[in-house]
Design a protein around this nucleic acid. Sequence first.
RNA 1: GCCGUCGUGGCUUAGCUCGGUAAAGCGGCUGAUUCGUAAUCAGCAGAUCAAGGGUUCAAAUCCCUUCGACGGCUCCA
Length: 634
Amino acid sequence: MQILLIHSDFIEYETKKSTPVAEKIDDDLKKGRMEEVLAVFVAVEKSDEDKPEYAASQTVAEIKKVTEQVKTNRVMLYPYAHLSSSLSSPKTAIETLKKIEELLKEAQFEVKRAPFGWYKSFTIKCKGHPLSELSRTIRIGEEKCVMVLKEKEKEEVVSEALKSEAKATSYWHILTPEGELLKPEEFDFKGHDNLKKFVNYEIHKSRAVDKIPPHVELMRRLELADYEPGSDSGNMRFYPKGRLMKSLIENYVLEETAKMGAMEVETPLMYDMNHPTLKKYLDRFPARQYSIEADKKQLFLRFAACFGQFLMNHDMTISYRNLPLRMVELTRYSFRKEQSGELVGLRRLRAFTMPDMHSLCKDMDEAVEQFNEQYNMCINVLSKIGINLSDFEVAIRFTRDFYEENRDFIVGLVKTVNKPVLIELWDQRFFYFVLKFEFNYIDAMDKASALSTVQIDVENAERYGIKYIDSTGAEKRPFILHCSPSGAIERCIYALLEKANMNSEKGIVPMFPVWLSPTQVRVIPVAGKHMEYAKKVAGELNGRVDIDDREETVGKKIRDAGKEWIPYVAVVGDEEINSGNITVTVRSESLPNKPSNIKMSVGELNERISKEISDFPFKRHPLAVKLTERPRFV
RNA sequence: GCCGUCGUGGCUUAGCUCGGUAAAGCGGCUGAUUCGUAAUCAGCAGAUCAAGGGUUCAAAUCCCUUCGACGGCUCCA
C-alpha cells in the first residue's frame, strides 16, 4: 500500500470517462469537494492482496496519526494508481478502499471517496506547512515505515531521526538580551531585518526571491572552486587559490581548538553499517548516507567525525582528572547524500570539510560551562574568518526541561551577542541533544545556512559505552559536546563570497580578509625596463606577492588586479626607482572605479600587512610569481 | 526525489518563434606598441551546438529520454 497525504484547503474532482475497471457509481458521486481536508491518495498493491483487511487497518492507523497532527477529521480518499508500479487487482483495490472508508466512518471521520477506475480531473490546494505533504508505505508484516526508491527498486532505510523530526512539535520564540521571551508575532522586528528573514525561513519556510546565487559565479571567476562533472553532484573541485583559502581556514580553526586543549586525531572515512553501535547511531542522526559495498561488507561514508572519535573514546581509559577531554578532527570529507534538488554551489554539498570537536564532560554543570566557552570561541572564529556578529543570526534550541533548569544561562548567551535570537523549544527530547545553538548566515536570497554549532549530547556516551572513572573509583557516563567552530569550511567561503557580493551592491569594494587573500600584494612594473626593480621590490615584500609581468598597459593590469580582489597593488616605474618608494593602491580604502593610491616605502607596506596577518596561519602562494607563467583554470 | 526553467568555442552570450553555410565580445596565440592607475591596436586559431534517440531531403532549431546547473517544493544533526 502506498499512500500520499496532503493537508489541503480543499480538493475537488469530477469524473470524465470510465475505464474498463471502473466501479459503478451513482450520479452524485461523479463530482465531489471537501474543504479543510486531508486528501489521501491511495495505491493498493500486489503485496496487499494476501491480507487486504490488515492493509486497510494499518492505513487507517496512519491516517489517524496524521489527522491528529494536522487537526482535521475530514478525509478524502482518492484512488491513485501512479503511486505504485506493482498494483493489486482492481477488485482487491475497490474492496480495500471501501474497507478503509468504512473503518474511517466508524472512527467518526467525515469521509468521501472518489470513485475507482475513472479518469477524473481534480484540483487541490495544498496548505504547504511542514506536515502538509507526507507519504507512507505500508507493508504486511513490517512495523517500520520505509520509503521506496523507485529507480533502484531497493528499500532505503530512513533513519528514525528523520521520521521523529516529522513528529517533533516545535515552539518558536524570540528571546531578547533583556530576557524577554516573546512569540514571533509579538516581537517587533524593526531593525532586525535578518532575524526576521531567518525566522521566516525557519518557521514558514517561505522565500520570495528568485536570483541565481552570486557566490557560484564568484567561486569560478576567482578560480577558487568549480563543479566536477566527473564526480557526483555536490562534490567540488578546488583550484589552487581555493585550496589555499580552505587550507588557511582549516589550519586556523584547528589552531584555535588546540589553544582550547583539543587533541587532533584522524579517523576512518568509512564504517561498517552493521556494526551494532553505529547502526543504532545512524538511526538517531537525520542524514542520508553514501553507501558502498566492499567484499561482503556494507559500508557507509561518515557524515561527521563522531563515529571514529566515539569508537576511540570507547577504548580509552579516562579518569575524571582528564576531563573535560577534547578531541578534534578536520573531516575532509564529511559526506551527506543530500537530496539533489537541495544542492547549491558551495552552500550545500554532498562532500564537505568540517572541523568536528567533541568534549567529554563529567556532569551537566561542566557541559554547560564548556558550552559557554565554545559559544564564545565560535563567535571569535567566525569574526576572524570575516563573518561578524552582524552577519549571522543566532538560533538556540532546547528541551523544555533544560530551559526550566537553565533559564539564566540561556539568557546569558543572548546577552553575549547582545541581540535577539530565535528560540526553538521542544516538549520532549526528539534528538540526542538537550541544547544546541547555531550561527546562521543569511544570504541575499534570504536563505539561512548554519555555520558554527555546539550541542550537548546526553545519549551517545551510553550508546558507545564511553565511560570515565570518578574520584571514588566508580564508572560514570560523561556528557558529550559536539562542536564545529566554523561549520563547513566550504560554507564559510560561500558566506564570504555572498557577503562580498552584498557589499559590492552597497557600493563597498568587495574583498577577503588580507590573511585569506590568495595574492596579498601585486607588483606592477610600468614597462619592461622596470621588471628588474619590480623583482627587487617583490623580494623585499612580506606576504604572498606576485608580479604582473604581462605586456599590458598599467590601466589594464590595475583593473585585472582589482578583479582578483587583491588588497595591495604596488606600481613601480621611473618615479619609484628615483624616489625609492612604491605607489600602492589600497583596496580597502578604494571606492568603486576610484582607486585609492598611497605613496609609501616597502617597509611601511610590510608593516601594514604584518599587522593584518600576524595572528593567522600563513602559506606561500601556490601559483608562479610571474603572471605569464601561470595557467588559467577556468 | 517532485515540478519548472535553462544547457551553443576556455568564459559570457546571439542564432531556436518560422528547420537550410553557427555569429560576436572576453580570454588564448602571433605581431605592433614600452606605455603612470579600473579594458592599447591588428591578425590567427578555437564549436561533433550537454549526451543519446526520433521526425525530416535537411535539426543548434521540432519531439522523446538521460545527465547537469539554477529556481520552487520537500529536506537541512
